[in-house]
């Protein structure tokens, strides 16, 4: 391992450990597990399409809790370091600010990976235990949700290098909402009456990442597999945005005065 990579790993692991020992993160994580597990109660009250509903609730829980965690961690992980001055003793070590910034967000991605992994694992286990039909699409959906949430988290992180954590969190939620309704925005643009309005809506479509296509929950609901190629394409698409946001964060962070 090169020394820079070693430093990135050290910072990422530290960030992960810090998140793992954080009581709020943990309380949050366990409550999501409880909801995922208890979603089988719907089997008792519904008679038709029961598996569909249970799958829906499970995946929606994973998505929602994952989103909150992604936004919370992404927007606060660097601002907290700056605000509490814990980074004074870290960035005055022989580590570049780029390695530091990449290490922090990698720690967040690792936290999301482990958290979503455990939630998805619990969900799949619950499906097996209750004898619900399984399909590859469930794993595919969880993976792309993870990529989508890392993207949102990286955006919050980028904004937090120059704005307050609260502003960053709201901006990231905004990105999520617009990105998830990309299809609707596009349709609106098609039917727009005035030219400037159409232009505005179209530019939104081009500027914002299309998060809707990373969301395979509707396929998972009916257990319809999607081609592996689509999953790969969407992963690469997400990764490009992730790289873009992280580069932006590095650029701003490198120039910043640590007051």
């Amino acid at each position: 391992m090169t020394s820079a990579l070693r430093q990135v790993v050290a910072i990422a692991l530290m960030t992960f450990l810090e998140a793992r020992r954080n009581r709020i993160t943990m309380a949050f994580f366990f409550s999501s597990l409880v909801i995922v597990v208890s979603s089988f109660v719907f089997r008792e009250v519904t008679t038709t399409g029961l598996d569909v509903i249970v799958r829906d609730v499970g995946l929606a829980t994973i998505h929602l809790f994952g989103l909150i965690l992604a936004v919370l961690l992404g927007s606060s992980v660097l601002s907290r370091e700056i605000e509490r001055k814990t980074l004074y003793m870290l960035i005055t070590k022989p580590v570049s600010r780029a390695s530091f910034a990449i290490g922090k967000i990698s720690g967040v991605a690792l936290t999301l990976l482990v958290t979503l992994g455990l939630m998805a694992g619990t969900f799949l286990l619950q499906q097996v235990v209750f004898g619900a039909p399984l399909g590859w699409i469930l794993a595919q959906t969880c993976w792309l949700l993870f990529v989508q949430l890392v993207l949102v988290s990286c955006f919050a992180y980028f904004v937090s290098t120059f704005a307050s954590p609260l502003v960053s969190a709201f901006m990231a939620l905004g990105l999520f909402v617009v990105g998830e309704s990309a299809g609707n925005v596009w349709t609106l643009a098609e039917h727009a009456e005035s030219a400037p309005y159409r232009l505005l809506l179209r530019s939104i479509c081009y500027l914002f990442p299309n998060l809707e296509r990373m969301n395979l929950k509707s396929f998972a609901q009916v257990l319809r597999d999607v081609p592996g190629r689509t999953v790969l394409e969407q992963s690469v698409y997400g990764l490009i945005y992730i790289a873009l946001f992280v580069s932006g964060a590095v650029l701003v962070f490198r120039r910043r005065d640590m007051k």
């Binding site: 070693r6 430093q7 050290a10 692991l13 870290l90 070590k93 022989p94 580590v95």
Partner: peptide
Amino acid sequence: RVMASLLG
């Protein structure tokens, strides 16, 4: 330990 890794 983290600081030691940063220090190489």
